[in-house]
Amino acid sequence: MTLLAVERIKLFSTRSPYWCSALALVLGVGLTAIIAASTDDGQLSIGVTQFGSSQLALSVVLVMAALAVTTEYRFSTIRATFLAVPNRTSALVAKTVVVAFIAGVLGEIIAFGSWGVAKLLSPASDLAINTGGEWRHVAGIGLLYGIGAVLAIAVGILVRQTAGAVAILLVWNMLLEGLIGIIPKVGTKIQAWLPFQNANNFLALPAGSDPGEGMAAGIDFKLSQWGSLAYFAGIAVALLVVALIVAKRRDA
């Protein structure tokens, strides 16, 4: 608990988490607002309300989580941290827990904020959250952000510099996994096992029920939707374990 308090103080005594949270909120909810405003009233579906949160704002959250650790390396406060807490694994795990928790809460705020804005701007649309799939599609954003944050922190610990970590995370999330689908024949087969594709699969609404939801189109996932989430989480945790081992062995 002590270490969680330490990481909380550290995180909230600098400005970057506030800026990143605000930016994620504006981008996530803002995109939904624009879509809602330019769609004819009554035509909006739940699947459309989460474009901003599941794609755009996710990237900002990944950057925020990576920054939480790369700035420590940038300003060498990681050394001050390791002097105060020589057990590096506990110190870094505490940081991961705090950042992932904040990312999760932020995810719920953005997801339901987007949904609320859509409802406000398009009152005639059927946006009621009835089915389990619909709940998962909206409330699942928080889980996605929390796990994404773990993954981003792992990358941050391994790379140690902001520019590198941010570039890796953004290219990986926004470009690489999508581009692999272009490879003939095997592309979509590989995609079925890529972490962010599985994250999208977790969010996907049941086929046919929502034509607006086409993000995981063409990929034949071998896992159930919750299985996909567990797979995404497994990869994030595995990467974190590698990062913790490296951090422990490396000179600070």
Binding site: I9, K10, S13, T14, R15, S16, S76, R79, A84
Partner: peptide, 16 residues
């Protein structure tokens, strides 16, 4: 210089 530039002196000592 092992201090975050945007963190106050008091906050720095507090987390320590």
């Amino acid at each position: 210089k092992w201090v975050h530039p945007n963190r106050s002196a008091r906050a720095h000592l507090k987390w320590l």
